[in-house]
Computed example of a mutant assay.
Amino acid sequence: MVREEKKREANTKIVKGTVTSCGDNYGWIENCVFFSIDAMIGPSRLRVGDKVVAFVEEHPLSYDLRAIEVCVLIEDDRPREAYSKIRELSVCVSKVRKDNICLADEYYFYLDSISKAILGFMPYEGDWLDIEYSLERRSSKITIHSLKATKCRHLQEVCVTSIHEQQGVLNHTIFFTFHSLKCPVGYTPLVGHVVNVVVVQSIRPNYNWRAVSMTPVNKLYRLGP
Score class of each variant (00 low, 15 high):
Val160Trp: 00
Asn206Ala: 07
Cys152Asn: 02
Thr12Asn: 06
Cys183Asp: 02
Ala104Cys: 01
Lys7Arg: 15
Val158Cys: 06
Ser202His: 00
Val195Asn: 02
Glu157Asn: 15
Glu125Asp: 01
Val185Tyr: 11
Asn196Ala: 00
Ile131Ala: 04
Thr150Ala: 12
Asp105Thr: 01
His154Asn: 14
Glu136Trp: 07
Val15Trp: 02
Glu4Asp: 05
Val96Leu: 09
Pro123Thr: 00
Thr150Lys: 03
Leu155Asp: 09
Tyr207Glu: 06
Cys22Pro: 03
Arg87Ser: 11
Cys32His: 02
His172Leu: 03
Arg204Ile: 15
Ile203Trp: 13
Lys116Ala: 10
Met122Gln: 11
Asp50Cys: 12
Ile131Ser: 08
Phe121Tyr: 13
Tyr124Phe: 14
Lys85Leu: 14
Leu119Asn: 10
Leu89Trp: 10
Lys141Leu: 14
Asn208Gly: 11
Val194Trp: 07
Val2His: 06
Asp105Lys: 11
Ser21Asp: 08
Ser134Lys: 05
Leu155Trp: 09
Gly168Met: 01
Ser44Arg: 14
Lys13Val: 06
Pro184Phe: 06
Ser94Leu: 09
Val2Trp: 05
Arg138Lys: 14
Ile144Asn: 07
Ser162Asn: 14
Ser146Pro: 09
Pro60Asn: 00
Gly49Arg: 02
Cys183Pro: 02
Ala211Arg: 00
Asn171Asp: 13
Thr143Lys: 05
Ile174Trp: 05
Tyr187Pro: 09
Gly224Tyr: 05
Arg47Asn: 13
Ser146Lys: 04
Val72Met: 11
Glu75Ile: 03
Asp99Cys: 08
Ala104Trp: 00
Trp209His: 02
Ile37Val: 12
Leu103Phe: 00
Ser21Glu: 10
Ser84Met: 14
Leu220Val: 14
Tyr187Ser: 01
Asn11Phe: 07
Lys85Gln: 13
Asn171Met: 02
Lys6Leu: 15
Asp77Ser: 07
Arg66His: 03
Leu61Asp: 13
Arg87Trp: 03
Lys13Cys: 14
Tyr108Pro: 04
Ile14Asp: 00
Ala10His: 13
Glu58Val: 09
Phe34Lys: 08
Thr150Arg: 12
Ala117Val: 08
Thr143Pro: 04
Ile41His: 06
Val195Pro: 05
Tyr187Met: 02
Ser94Tyr: 05
Arg8Phe: 13
Leu223Gln: 12
